[in-house]
Simulated scan of single mutants.
Amino acid sequence: MKKINMTEASVIIGGTCETCVNTYELMTVNSASVCADVKTCTDKNGAVTRTYKIADKANCPVVG
């Protein structure tokens, strides 16, 4: 049997493919409206992670 490294193994079993989408959301933090850049990533197993960064309010959709 041939030994392989993790990089080779991940390709064989489907890789470590991660799909990410960036969106902007208007949020309330301490009673103040802030715009957040939300990065939502889904890995090959369906696990979802979200990261938030403060963004310019001009990027957020207008609520009306």
Rank of each mutant, 00 (worst) to 15 (best):
V63H: 11
I12N: 01
D56V: 00
T49G: 04
A47C: 04
T51Q: 13
D37R: 14
K39E: 13
N30I: 07
I13M: 01
I12Y: 05
G46W: 03
T42P: 07
V29R: 14
A47I: 08
I4W: 02
S31G: 04
V34L: 13
G64S: 15
N5W: 02
K3Y: 05
M27L: 15
T40P: 01
T42V: 15
A55T: 04
T49L: 12
T42G: 06
K57C: 09
I4V: 13
E8C: 10
K44V: 15
V38L: 01
I54V: 10
M6Y: 04
E25W: 01
N30C: 12
T23N: 14
N45D: 13
G46I: 04
A55L: 04
M6G: 01
E18P: 00
A47G: 04
G14D: 10
R50N: 09
V21F: 02
K44M: 12
T16S: 12
C17Y: 06
T42N: 02
V29H: 14
I12T: 02
L26W: 01
A36P: 00
V11E: 12
G14S: 08
T40E: 11
A32S: 15
I13S: 02
T51N: 09
T42E: 14
V63G: 12
T40H: 04
Y52F: 13
T16G: 10
G64R: 14
T19Q: 13
T7K: 06
K53W: 04
T28E: 14
V62F: 12
K2C: 05
C17R: 14
A9H: 00
P61T: 03
R50Y: 00
A36R: 13
K44H: 12
D43I: 06
T49N: 08
T51M: 10
K53A: 10
L26N: 11
C17P: 04
S10I: 02
C20Y: 08
K53E: 12
M6H: 04
K44T: 10
K3R: 11
P61H: 10
K53V: 07
M1P: 06
K2I: 09
T28A: 08
M27T: 14
D56Q: 05
R50T: 06
E18I: 15
D56L: 02
V63F: 14
V11K: 11
V34C: 07
K3L: 12
T7Y: 03
D56K: 05
T51Y: 05
C35T: 02
V48N: 01
T49V: 14
N22Q: 06
V29M: 15
G46D: 03
T49W: 07
K3F: 06
D37P: 00
T19A: 12
G64D: 15
E18C: 08
A58M: 03
T19V: 09
A9P: 00
R50E: 09
A32K: 15
M1H: 11
D37E: 14
G14T: 08
D37F: 01
C35G: 03
K57T: 11
